[in-house]
Design a protein around this nucleic acid. Structure first.
Length: 569
RNA sequence: CGGGGCAUGGCGCAGUCUGGUAGCGCAUCUGCUUUGGGAGCAGAGGGUCGCAGGUUCAAAUCCUGCUGCCCCGACCA
C-alpha cells in the first residue's frame, strides 16, 4: 500500500480517554476510533491486523473439522424465551422492537440460534459429532466498557458450538478445540496459559479459559512454575502444609489490646507477625445462625470456596454486626474461636499454627499462646483461603505464582442445558430421540488485537508479532523529492516486493525523515528498509527489525531474498 | 448500579474561584527556507465554550435541570 493514498493520522499526544497502553497505542497509531462508549470503528491499518487474527482462527478451526456459518446479530425474542434466558439475562442483553412491535435482541451470544439450527438440521446420530462456528459481531451492554476494544460493548467474537451423542464424544470434541486454541494462540505469537475456570452459572463438566499474560489484565491467575497447571485464583486449591504442627510451648494468656481491630493493628500492639495470628470470620449460616471460618492472619478468605461448605448460607455473605454480637458477644476485631458455639471450620494453614494469637470474644482483648487441642477443640479442616505467591502447586509440581491475564478464549463442555430446554434431539441407533450434548468455544477476536499490543510494545509504539502485523515490511525512502535515484529505487523495490507476494507498506509521503521513521515504529511494522543516497552509492540499503536497536546493511540487489529469509524465521 | 471526575476548534489543554474582546501547543492550509529521528520563519482558516432553562446591562465563568464521556468497586470473549 502506498501511504500517500491512505492518509493515516498518527498522533503524538496520548488521548486522555485511554488508560491502558494498548488503547493509547491503537488510538495514536490510528487503528481504531471511538464512535460511542465501547463502540469503535476499525480504520484500515487496524482492520488488517483484525483480519489476520480472524484468518488464523479460521484456518485452525477448519483444520480441527469445524464448519463456518454466519448467524444473525438480531435475533427474535421467542428463541430467548424458549431457553429461559429472556428472563435470566440482565440489562446486558440489548432488547429492541421492530415496527410491528415484535421483540428482538442483539445477540450477546448465539446458543439459542445455533441450537434452533441444529435441531432443524441434525436428525440422525450419523450426522454427529458436528461443530459449527462463526466470526461475528456481538453486543453486550456492559455496565462499564473500558480499555478500548479490550472491553467494548460491540465486539467481534469467534463462537463455536459442537453437538454430540454422548459424553465421550463431547470430551473428544472439547479436546480437539483445546488443541486448536493452543495452536492459534501460539501462531499469533502470544504468551498465554490455559487456565482452569469455574463452570459457574453455565454448568457442565469442564471449562478452561485462555489467558494472555499481561500486567494490565483484569483476571488473577495462579500458575505453577513447575508444569502447565494454571487456575483462576478463586479456584486454585490451597494445599495443607506438609510440616507437622509445632508443640505447645507457651502458656495461654490474655492480652489487653485496645483498638486493635485489624490484624495489622494487632501485630503492631503485640509485636507479632500476621502469620502468627488467627483471623476469625463469621459468615451467615443456612439455619439463620452463623458459621466461623478461621484463616491465618496473612491469608485471605476465598468466598467461592467458603460458599460451598456445608452449613454456609447461599448466597455467601458475611455476618452483620448484630449477628456477630449475638454469636461472639463482642464486636468484629476481637472474635476468636475459643468458646464459640457455632460450627467452626479452619483453613489447613490455620490448623498448623501453634502458640498463636486470636481474639478473646471480649472488647480490647486478645489471647496469646493459644494451642489447638489444649485450649480449644480441634475444628473441622477445610480449604478456605486464596492461594498466595509461593504456595505449592496443586498439580504437585512447582510453586504457584500469581499473575494477571486477559481472557481471550473460553471453552466449555455445556452438556444438555440448551439442547434440553430447546428440545434438540437426534434419533439414535435404536431409533429413539436422544437429546444432544453440546460444547461451546469462544474467542474474543477484537480483544486479541489489544492483548497482543499489551504484550508487545515499547516506548516508541507497537511491536507486532509477525503473524499479526498489518504489513510485513515498510519502505522508507529518504528525501525522495531531491533524489531521483532514491525515488526510482523505492518504486522499483515496492514493485518487487509486491511481485514477491510480500505485504509491503510504501511510505511515499512527502514527509521529513523523522516523521516517517517515527510512524514506522509507532505502527510496529516488523521489518523496515530505509532507502537513502548514502547507502545507495555502495549498493546498500539499511535494514532494521522493529525490536533491534541498530541498523544492518543489506545489499540492494538481494533485498527481497534478504527479507524473505527473515520472514521465515 | 453505587462513588468520584470531566465536558472550551480535529487532538491535548489554559481561562471558570474573582462575570466584561475566547487563548496556548499539536494538527490543517499558503509562501519561503529546510530535509538521516516527529523542522524554522511569516501568514491563514477553524470554536453558538455539551444541551435546556434561569440570574444579570452583560454568562465559558454564577444558579437549576438534563445529556454525554472518563476513572474506582460486584459481571464477562
Amino acid at each position: 500500500m502506498r501511504l500517500s493514498l491512505y492518509p493515516i493520522n498518527t498522533v503524538k499526544e496520548t488521548p486522555s480517554e485511554a488508560e491502558v497502553i494498548s488503547h493509547q497505542l491503537m488510538l495514536r497509531a490510528g487503528l481504531i476510533r471511538r464512535v460511542a462508549a465501547g463502540i469503535y470503528t476499525w480504520l484500515p491499518m487496524g482492520l488488517r491486523t483484525l483480519r489476520k487474527v480472524e484468518q488464523i482462527i479460521r484456518e485452525e478451526m477448519d483444520r480441527a473439522g469445524a464448519m463456518e456459518v454466519l448467524m444473525p446479530a438480531v435475533q427474535p425474542a421467542e428463541l430467548w424465551q424458549e431457553s429461559g434466558r429472556w428472563e435470566q439475562y440482565g440489562p446486558e442483553l440489548l432488547r429492541l422492537k421492530d415496527r410491528h412491535d415484535r421483540s428482538f435482541v442483539i445477540g450477546p451470544t448465539h446458543e439459542e440460534v445455533i441450537t434452533a439450527t441444529a435441531r432443524a438440521e441434525l436428525k440422525s446420530y450419523r450426522q454427529l459429532p458436528a461443530n459449527f462456528y462463526q466470526i461475528q459481531v456481538k453486543f453486550r451492554d456492559e455496565v462499564r466498557p473500558r480499555f478500548g476494544v479490550m472491553r467494548g460493548r460491540e465486539f467481534i467474537m469467534k463462537d463455536a458450538y459442537s453437538f454430540h451423542l454422548d459424553q465421550a464424544s463431547l470430551a473428544e470434541g472439547y479436546a480437539a478445540m483445546r488443541a486448536a486454541y493452543v495452536r492459534m494462540f501460539t501462531r499469533m505469537g502470544l504468551q498465554f496459559r490455559a487456565v482452569q475456570a469455574d463452570t459457574g452459572s453455565i454448568g457442565g463438566n469442564a471449562s478452561e479459559e485462555f489467558q494472555v499474560l499481561a500486567n494490565s489484565g483484569e483476571d488473577a491467575i495462579a500458575a505453577s512454575d513447575g508444569d502447565e497447571y494454571a487456575a483462576n485464583v478463586e479456584l486454585a486449591a490451597a494445599l495443607p502444609p506438609t510440616h507437622a504442627r509445632a508443640a505447645a510451648s507457651q502458656p495461654l494468656a490474655e492480652a489487653h489490646t485496645p483498638n486493635a481491630k485489624s490484624i495489622e493493628q494487632l501485630c503492631g500492639a503485640l509485636k507479632v507477625s500476621p502469620a502468627q495470628c488467627l483471623k476469625t470470620l463469621l459468615v451467615a449460616g443456612q439455619d439463620g445462625g452463623v458459621v466461623a471460618l478461621l484463616v491465618r492472619g496473612d491469608h485471605e478468605l476465598n468466598a467461592v470456596k467458603a460458599g460451598k461448605l456445608p452449613g454456609v448460607a447461599s448466597p455467601f455473605r458475611m455476618a452483620n454486626a448484630a449477628e456477630v454480637q449475638a454469636a461472639a458477644g463482642c464486636e468484629p476485631g476481637f472474635i476468636g474461636p475459643r468458646g464459640l458455639k457455632c460450627p467452626v471450620y479452619a483453613d489447613h494453614s490455620a490448623l498448623a499454627l501453634a502458640n498463636f494469637v486470636c481474639g478473646a470474644n471480649r472488647l480490647d482483648t486478645h489471647l496469646t499462646g493459644v494451642n489447638w487441642g489444649r485450649d480449644l477443640p480441634e475444628p473441622t479442616a477445610a480449604d478456605l483461603r486464596n492461594v498466595v505467591d509461593g504456595d505449592p502447586s496443586p498439580s504437585g509440581q512447582g510453586r504457584l505464582k500469581i499473575v494477571r491475564g486477559i481472557e481471550v478464549g473460553h471453552i466449555f463442555q455445556l452438556g444438555r442445558k440448551y439442547s434440553e430446554a430447546m428440545n434438540a434431539t437426534v434419533l439414535d441407533e435404536s431409533g429413539k430421540a436422544s437429546t444432544m450434548l453440546m460444547g461451546c468455544y469462544g474467542i474474543g477476536v477484537t480483544r486479541i488485537v489489544a492483548a497482543a499490543i499489551e504484550q508487545n510494545h515499547d516506548d516508541r509504539g507497537i511491536i507486532w508479532p509477525a503473524p499479526l502485523a498489518p504489513f510485513q515490511v515498510v519502505l522508507v525512502p529518504m528525501n525522495a523529492h531531491k533524489s531521483e535515484l532514491v525515488r526510482d529505487t523505492a518504486e522499483r523495490l515496492y514493485a518487487e516486493f509486491i511481485a514477491a507476494g510480500i505485504e509491503v507498506l510504501y511510505d511515499d509521503r512527502d514527509a521529513r525523515p523523522g516523521v516517517k521513521l517515527a510512524d514506522a515504529e509507532l505502527l510496529g511494522i516488523p521489518h523496515r528498509i530505509v532507502i537513502g543516497e548514502r547507502g545507495l552509492a555502495n549498493g546498500q540499503l539499511e535494514y532494521r527489525a522493529r525490536r533491534a536497536a541498530d541498523n544492518e546493511d543489506m545489499p540492494l540487489a538481494k533485498a527481497v531474498a534478504f527479507i524473505r529469509a527473515r520472514l521465515n524465521t
